[in-house]
């Protein structure tokens, strides 16, 4: 039995025992039905037809191509949004300028846009009927229904993750340490590398793993720009959809189980970061709930 919370230890902030256990019972039932069961179902369905079927679904060429494309898209979107996040947080936290609040709101914008709309906007810009469509066609460059479109859509939906983790963190830390370093003769990048980075490392890592999970799992936006060409423009979530629609349920859940594992690993690392940063006595930016369309 875990130790009592500080609220349970005092008579004035304690509810009757029957009330406590009813509340815990109801909320845990809700938790189990809506969260735990779906999670267990993924692995149960994946292994329903045996381990051989499970493994076969994962090494099948189209699945391997989908895994490779998912990793590629994340490997491009992640560094892009990482550099952006650090730059935006530096400008916003270390300097005063007009329109800062508008800028922060605009950075959050992709969270409140439906994933389907996120895909659509790139079709409108780069699609055959889009702004650059004719030019791209003349030069034989494919963006929509090809890998670049998938990368763009992934970048859009994961755009705010790292920035919104770093901005409040760096704002809270102030500017004194960096100013001291510069006054003592450090160059700009030295200041960042030796002073700022150690201070923000947990927040940065936190943003990166959440960004990565979303990048690898995005469905709606990528589905609009992908064209669903097997072995070429299918990411893992899209491959899951195709298998599922072809009634290859076990195979669909096998690929899905990889994504579920990724989600679990993400949560483990996230919890670990929260522990470490609490131990470092720099309170983590408590999982500021992600905005809407995440």
């Amino acid at each position: 039995m875990a130790a009592l919370t500080r609220f349970e230890a005092r008579a004035a902030t304690r509810e009757p025992t029957w009330f406590k256990w009813t509340l815990i019972g109801v909320s845990l039932t809700f938790f189990a039905v809506f969260l735990l069961l779906p999670l267990i179902t993924v692995f149960h369905e994946a292994l329903k037809k045996g381990v051989d079927t499970y493994l076969a679904a994962l090494v099948e060429p189209d699945a391997v191509a989908a895994i490779r494309l998912t990793l590629t898209a994340a490997a491009i979107a992640l560094p892009l949004n990482l550099v952006f996040g650090v730059a935006a947080a530096w400008a916003i936290a270390k300097f005063d300028f007009r329109g800062k609040h508008v800028l922060i709101t605009l950075i959050d914008l992709p969270f409140s846009v439906s994933p389907v709309v996120a895909g659509l906007i790139y079709v409108l810009v780069f699609g055959a009927q889009g702004w650059f469509g004719p030019w791209l066609m003349d030069h034989d460059v494919k963006v929509i229904f090809a890998v670049p479109g998938i990368v763009l859509a992934t970048t859009f939906v994961t755009f705010p993750f790292i920035a919104r983790e770093l901005i409040p963190l760096m704002q809270a830390q102030g500017r004194e340490e960096e100013e001291a370093a510069v006054v003592l003769g450090a160059r700009g990048w030295q200041t960042f590398w030796f002073v700022t980075l150690p201070n923000i490392k947990w927040g940065l890592l936190y943003g990166v793993i959440l960004c990565n999970a979303r990048a690898m799992g995005e469905f709606g936006a990528v589905s609009v720009v992908s064209g669903h060409i097997r072995g070429e423009t299918n990411t893992m979530p899209l491959h899951v959809e195709i298998l599922y629609n072809e009634y290859q349920s076990a195979a669909a859940f096998a690929v899905a189980s990889l994504l579920a594992l990724l989600a679990l690993v993400t949560l483990v690392i996230k919890t670990w970061i929260e522990h470490r940063s609490a131990a470092d006595n720099a309170p983590p930016q408590e999982s500021a709930p992600q905005g809407p369309a995440s």
Partner: peptide, 25 residues
């Protein structure tokens, strides 16, 4: 926040699952 019960840490960590689990899954 207010009560202690067995498995609390696990429940707390898993609450974020919908953020991490791909929507298609």
């Amino acid at each position: 926040v207010r009560y202690s019960f067995p498995g609390k840490k696990l429940v707390d960590a898993l609450v974020d699952l919908p953020f991490a689990l791909p929507t298609a899954v």
